[in-house]
Design a protein around this nucleic acid. Structure first.
Lengths: 206, 206
DNA sequence: TTAACATTGTGAATTTATTAACATTTTTCT
DNA sequence: AGAAAAATGTTAATAAATTCACAATGTTAA
């Protein structure tokens, strides 16, 4: 496989979730237009994405749900699984930890961090909370590759630097402050205010 | 102004936030490449976005921070302000409510909803929690245009239908389930799992 | 004063993403 | 059997987003 576009990767992740639900309902096959309807996109887009990963469906029967789930897994998951940590166990950190706990096998949250001493040592959804000062040590011990940052904006860069120094390979930044990482670290930033302002803009302009 | 691209709208929101910080620090002017560095994009991109909104900077001095903040406000804010509600006051709902409380003047969260009777009547960051059954009534009374949905996935479509019926104009869906809305309602969906899986993919493929 | 420099603004080129169009194939119906 | 229908797979066309390239111009320094 040559090079999957970023957008295709995102959609594959979403297709998989939809497919898992379909599988749970007992569907064995699904048409491109059914996936498309669920995801609010076009059937052509779905077929193109699936073409890009080299899968081919059955004419008139559509795609085999089980096979497609497995193939998407081969593309986007790592065989060995990836360990993840959450830094900042406030409301957002807890929401995310909760969300993931026990769900994925390939991506597991194995540590949470906070600078609030009263939280350190407690468990959140079964995952132990460590002191942020121990980030370096814990990340190495637990072989953590990805960090999810849910601290206040003013701490964002400082925590980022700690994570980078600890050897993190990917960072998901949910703080409102953009941070800097060296180019070998993959960075994804998301900001709720931007999303809400965007909705407000399009509501305003009909 | 003709038609601003979606991506430009998102970036304008982000520029504004960066600019507000710069303004708070006492900066009166800023160069395109400074904004670009903060946002991890190119200076040309910044200049082009600013060109699109019809602002023009000063050669060799860059952009006037105050003026640019105000102009972006004119573009993306509504004069009268927009009222927003949060449905589902679990961890994520509280994180968002907390995040916004007291910050924006143009976008304000004026109600939160939950189906848990023990939460109804309580206040969350100063905002009263109503019963989901009263969504229709409260949305009309309080003139709410935008809903942020942070309920469990299995309730997503049901709540969406209630919001749509109540006359909501924009919906930000933070549940893991895509929902359907009539075409006159602006829908933005965001899913944390997809973001994390994307990071994992790019970490895996270096 | 004049040359070197740094910055904005923008048309053109390029790249990325989406959509259209349609050939192909299997199934169903008559 | 043959026609009609419904689906996939894919090339080509189009649209959207980004980057390049550079003219224009104010600023600084010699």
């Amino acid at each position: 496989m040559k090079h999957l576009p970023h957008k295709t990767i995102e959609r594959l992740s979403q297709y998989r979730r939809a497919l898992l639900l379909c599988h749970a309902k007992g569907m064995s096959h699904i048409y491109s237009h059914e996936i498309a309807t669920i995801q609010h996109i076009t059937a052509v887009q779905v077929r193109r994405d699936i073409m890009l990963i080299g899968y081919t469906g059955t004419l008139r029967k559509g795609y085999n749900v089980r096979e497609l789930i497995d193939l998407i897994g081969q593309i986007i998951d790592s065989d060995e699984g990836i360990n993840v940590c959450v830094v900042g166990i406030g409301n957002l950190g807890r929401a995310i930890t909760n969300y993931f706990s026990g769900k994925r096998t390939k991506l597991s949250i194995v540590a949470v961090f906070d600078n609030d001493k009263s939280k350190v040592g407690k468990k959140y959804h079964g995952i132990e909370c460590y002191n942020v000062e121990d980030i370096g040590k814990v990340i190495k011990e637990k072989n953590i590759d990805i960090g999810i940052m849910t601290v206040p904006g003013e701490d964002a860069q400082k925590i980022t630097d700690l994570l980078v120094k600890a050897g993190i390979k990917g960072l998901l930044n949910y703080t409102p402050k953009p941070v800097n990482v060296p180019k070998e670290v993959y960075l994804e930033e998301y900001d709720m205010i931007t999303s809400l302002e965007k909705v407000a803009f399009f509501v305003k302009t009909h």
